[in-house]
């Protein structure tokens, strides 16, 4: 019984609105600190790579962007699932809130991958397995957002895009492995994956801090955008009027 209370509370817009408002600053400042330190550590303190020299520093934004695009997709699919199964409107709002963020970072991952590939591979685009599956992920995001915007009715948009997100998330591993399989048939191991010894800690720590920073950033954006969605969706609810009249925003 008690274990489920928190879950039901998560379904209540006033509760979520307050919680998200309370946590958002922590996430936001945490993200700022981590990203600033991570960039400093990665761009200034870390030694150049023995093979790729200073070009490897692109990893400090490329890899976290890839991580963020995947973790946003997962968040979206989990939220969509919760929204469909338990008919929780707030979960649909969360899925809607996080999709554009994930799409933008999928794009950043592709663009920085291309910028990294240029000096390393000699071309702007190589049909590298990881880049290709990232590209397909971007297409999945675009399809999701297009489907959402093609429905005028909010409930219908919520529920159909939720079905799509779930179909997509089942497909993501299949796409991923099929692209790897395809890639390994047509070319050898990629340059980026070349026999690299494990990273020394002065390289690794800033990278991990960047991962943490991007994750905190995702949580901050999720909180803020979710609050905006709640304000839009619950605009006629009494609790909301009381909440904003009391000055608690």
């Amino acid at each position: 019984m008690a274990t489920w209370t928190w879950f039901h509370k998560l379904g209540s817009p006033p509760h979520v609105y307050r919680i998200a408002g309370r946590f958002a600053p922590w996430f936001g400042w945490g993200a700022l600190l981590c990203i600033v330190y991570g960039l400093f550590g990665g761009l200034v303190l870390a030694p150049p790579d023995y093979q790729q020299k200073d070009a490897f520093r692109i990893i400090y934004v490329h890899a976290p962007a890839a991580w963020l695009s995947l973790s946003c997709y997962t968040t979206m699919a989990v939220a969509a699932f919760v929204g469909l199964v338990w008919r929780m409107k707030i979960a649909h709002a969360a899925a809607a809130a996080i999709a554009p963020v994930g799409a933008s970072f999928a794009f950043v991952c592709l663009a920085t991958g291309s910028l990294w590939g240029r000096p390393m591979w000699g071309t702007w685009w190589e049909w590298d397995a990881r880049l290709t599956s990232q590209l397909i992920l971007l297409f999945l995001y675009l399809g999701y957002m297009a489907l959402r915007s093609a429905h005028d009715d909010l409930q219908r948009a919520d529920r159909s895009s939720a079905v799509l997100a779930i179909v997509g998330v089942v497909n993501v591993p299949i796409i991923h492995y099929s692209v790897y399989w395809w890639n390994s048939l047509h070319q050898g191991a990629t340059v980026m994956k070349a026999d690299r010894p494990s990273m020394p800690s002065e390289m690794l720590v800033p990278l991990l801090v960047m991962f943490l920073g991007f994750t905190l950033f995702q949580l901050w954006v999720l909180c803020t955008r979710l609050r905006a969605e709640i304000l839009e969706r619950e605009r006629n609810a009494r609790w909301l009027q009381e909440q904003i009249r009391d000055g608690a925003r």
């Binding site: 200073d54 070009a55 934004v61 803020t224």
Partner: peptide, 30 residues
Amino acid sequence: MGGYAAYVWPSIGLAIGTLVVNMMMARRRH
């Protein structure tokens, strides 16, 4: 950047730019 400035800085800039744009859009929406 050891000669890789033309690749490193646009990457960093794009990433920071995307972070900032996402942040501003979220704040503006709210």
